[in-house]
Write a protein that binds this DNA or RNA. Sequence first.
RNA 1: CUGCCCGUAGCUCAACUGGAUAGAGCAACGGCCUUCUAAGCCGUAGGUUACAGGUUCGAUUCCUGUCGGGCAGGCCA
Length: 552
Amino acid sequence: MKKLISDLIKKTCENFDVIIDNQDIEIDRPKALDHGDFSTNIALKLSKQLRQKPREIADQFVKFIGSHSLFSQLEIAGPGFINFFLSSEGRVAQLNEIFSKRECYGHNDSGGQQSLQIEFVSANPTGPLHIGHGRGAAIGDCLARIFSANGWRVTKEFYYNDAGAQINNLALSVQARLKNISPNDADFPEDGYRGDYIVDIAESYTQKHSITVDGKIYKASGDIDDLKNIKEFSIAFLRNEQNQDLANFRTTFDVFTLESSFYENDQIKSVVQNIKNNNYTFEKDNALWLKTTEFGDDKDRVMQKSDGSYTYFVPDVVYHKNKWERGFIRVINEQGADHHSTITRVRAGLQALNIGIPKDWPEYVLHQMVTVTKNNEEVKISKRAGSYVTLSDLISEVGCDATRYFLISRKADSQLVFDIDLAKSNSNENPVYYIQYAHARICAVLSQAKQSAQNISVQDIERLTTKNELQLIKKIIEFPDIVLLAATEKSPHYLATYLKDLASDFHSYYNESKFLIDDANLKKSRITLITAIAIVIQNGLSLLGISAPEKM
RNA sequence: CUGCCCGUAGCUCAACUGGAUAGAGCAACGGCCUUCUAAGCCGUAGGUUACAGGUUCGAUUCCUGUCGGGCAGGCCA
């Protein structure tokens, strides 16, 4: 429909010999009902070029376009907007699309089935997942669903930093617990992890448990002095726990990549050598530096320390080279904003390889911190101190649906406050129930109408004339735009906001109008409308990984 | 000191990326269940969009500066 309108405008411009950019044609969905179903600001934009008043230009456009069967009228409003009002034929055409596409309504093929990877969560295997990881999981998983719906072939990936110093700290912490050294003792590792979960790992280790992760079996020997075994078992234990938490959060991954795998076969060495050969390095103070300043950084960074080991971002560069070689046209990394400084370094490293990677590859979605409050006090999230709110606690207390909704309903780059007490005690007031309730209400009506969603046919909907009805029709035919917007802006929260608005419009309608009425014709029209609404709510919730119950 | 993010109703947040009268939910007040699910609806009240300039037909949105909050700035990860 938008395409149709912009073609009409293009044709008009050609007729008047006006030269325009395709980008200059903006088709909007006005928020006010009496501003029509679509609007364009083309006349305002052309005002300067044509040296005419916007309303005069708009008038010529409207006269040229004339009448069209899909529109009941075109109107010039405000400073010079042209508003398009759908005719009932136009509405029928739009509603037919909903019923013919069903669970695919709203989807598009803008991605052209190209391959896209989204990496998210990527928590270190040094502790349980906390609420911050939950935000990453929710945003990343929703983005994956959204991009699939936009015609991308999506791979969801989790990267484990299982090779750094913090892993040694983990092993040492578990070993200390095995030796009955408590975190308060002076002997406890200085940078050790002090949380109670370390005790759980130690106990499991003592009992010689076996854990299977990603198809591999890890067996605890129970030997207190076997640090290598303690390390491997601890990682397996925590990875397994993280995967379970994520599964309970309806978040799954296609690929798990381990940082340790890049230390095999001299992969890091050869990448560093390539960068060296390309003259993007220099030696200073007995260390090897990367000239990141040539790629926009404010100072150069050490790649290889004087002791011969590599700094943390070097494996990241290798990992991203690996992603590139796997053929991903686009890679989106969802991370906490506290890691934003790595963006420049990773991109710089990839540029220094000189293998044709675009400057702005990979892309990043950064989410800001989640603050947790309980009893009106902030709960500090500190893994080392052992006090934090785990994702698993949150899911069991608040529920998967509500937690997911809450964590994606705000844009990623603003900080959010998660009030545990509110989420727990007043869980019925959580907005997600509001949306699900609208769906459940429709299902109840349909079941009493003995109306299966399968045999609806859109026919005459001229009887749908109330303000609520027109508003709802306008809203549901807007859905495909929102799906596209959420992808282009990499922002799932647009869907959350949209669904809440749609549910609100429906609840108003529900209170105003009855559906199971004697007037068979009107009844049929209304049933058609609410069935379409149910389809849209289902599709929208599905893109957010939230269930759409038929009864509540 | 430098870079990035944020600042909107008492609180938590939106605002279709520059559009028309800045909107929801909590909290407050007043109404609506004999009728398809009241986890709902309707109404009242609540705003100098942190502040000061600039850009233009038009700014919560873009630019500059100031103030305030957060996060980074390591041969830690």
